[in-house]
Design a protein around this nucleic acid. Sequence first.
RNA 1: CGGGAUGUGGCGCAGCUUGGUAGCGCACUUCGUUCGGGACGAAGGGGCCGCAGGUUCGAAUCCUGUCAUCCCGACCA
Length: 596
Amino acid sequence: MRVSRLMLVTLRDDPAEAEITSHKLLLRAGYMRRLAPGIFAYLPLLWRVLQKVSAIVREEMAAVDALETLLPQLQPADLWRRSGRWDGYTAGEGIMFHLVDRQERSLGLGPTHEEVVTELASDLLRSYRQLPVCLYQIQTKFRDEIRPRFGLMRGREFIMKDAYSFHADEACLRRTYAAMDGAYRRIFERCGLRAVAVEADSGAIGGSASQEFMVTAEAGEDLILASPDGRYAANQERAVSLPAPPVPLEVSACQPLATPAQKSIEELCTAHGFDPTQTLKVLLLLARFAAAPPRGVLVCLRGDQQLNDVKLANAVTARCPDAGALLEIVPLLADHLCDPVPFGFLGPHLEDPALRQGEARVAAAPMLRLADPSAADLEAFVCGANRSDEHLVGARWGELCPRPEVVDLRAAQPGDRCLHDPSQRLEAARGIEVGHIFQLGRKYSEALEARFTNEAGGEEPLWMGCYGIGVSRLAQAAVEQHHDADGIRWPVAIAPYTVIVVIASSQDPVQVALAEELYERLRVGGCDVLLDDRPERAGVKFKDADLIGIPWRLVVGRAAGERKVELVDRSGDTGKRELAADAAVEQLLGLPGASP
RNA sequence: CGGGAUGUGGCGCAGCUUGGUAGCGCACUUCGUUCGGGACGAAGGGGCCGCAGGUUCGAAUCCUGUCAUCCCGACCA
């Protein structure tokens, strides 16, 4: 391709709309344009990158016997109601774009395809003899993100590879899951990305085991906690660790303590010399559901610990199976209550308060009472007395109130000791989630009655897995990981073009002739090559070549008369060197990806 | 939805405090000189100053409302 015909528009200044480097560079280098928040036009250069990523994905999917398909993006609400996800995905903070058609039928614009693919599987997969099967597609997904940001990192319309596998038993699911794990590692490696696999929360997709693939980068939205020995890595949403041991509380009996206006753990400890690990933190929350009245939640944590919202949401969802989708969990405020409670002085023995909805009292289920092990394991502790300006010192579970149900709710922090080896301490890194694989189990097949006949002749629900890669996000993550002060430095495997032939002086017919010849030879040889034939000064062309990040630059300049050219490695590894034109062509045609 | 910021030619910005009829850099067009790291000179085209209302002889500038975009939290590939 000739640069003069490429519709290349590069910008000198960083666009004001972009915050992080990769977003700025993709805009400046003419790879994309924003149409609306989270909605981008992929310009020809970016489309080539996305195609190259897709090609690698296709090869690796084929290697694990996955079948490419293309599934509908317009999806009937009814299907989503049957899986139980319509309300959660459309009401409240749901992310599904949805609409009503001329027949008054509700439709959603596919944010993911578990429902559609499961419906298809229930239709087509009748016998264990057909299993396992893995289907995948590379397609635009639609998600009405609460806050789109950072360009392709979190778009409302983005390209995703999603795969779904179906199995006769769990062992088979595990094998495919492991094969996908391997395929994913190869995909990211081939794309030139440094990625790490971490344990993850399954989120709205659900299922049991799940693992995320993170491209490590400062601009990443996720916090990764990992052990230095490399044996444990998890998203902070999911991470587990050992909290610091508590300082024992030396008291004989439970006694009240006057604590005027000491509402925070910090104030309490400062005033009376307690260590935060000796205190109990009681949080009052309100969970709202799609199909049930709101329910109060009382959470106990050790005073020095923080609540992990994701763990809490999972715990609440698991304990309210008939309430429909969990819409949100918010702090319980005085406005929600019929009678005041002494916020700041709460203890775990707080009686169920009556909830108010508008002006009406809600006949609420009893509060859900949960305690993190850090709180449940305390022998004796300091907690609120459920009376203003008063705490209890030396309270014990069993004496004060029954010990609540114990569930892991605390947020692991960098510096915490690891479970597998307490001498290791968790270290923090930021990551961009580019892939996520799940063992779904039978969640969708049970809901949508996707059953097969097993070897014994009985019917049972299919076992399922699903496996996603954010293709457009991956492209931007690559820029985030591979750039310098001059612009993008694409890994060769996903660069839009492998080589750019630059004519230093377009006025020199000798240079033009040689450049045209080399361009043609490279093109015919199967190399993805650009020819910068624009009547610009050399400096402009060099700057643009650096900015758009083509891995190899072949400069045809002063030495063209002796058929000598200059070859520059954008990655900076080998620098620039002068060599015979024929040798340069030979070398470039020998590069990976150069032949058709 | 809550908090913060910003809206001025295609892009990046100044002007607003103290109202007087819009400016700079980049980009674009033409001509000339230049020609290996974003050249220089000359000439030129392009702006309902986000939108609506108000104050005023007069509003980009002051007031009110509204919309949009970006950033921080809940969402996730």
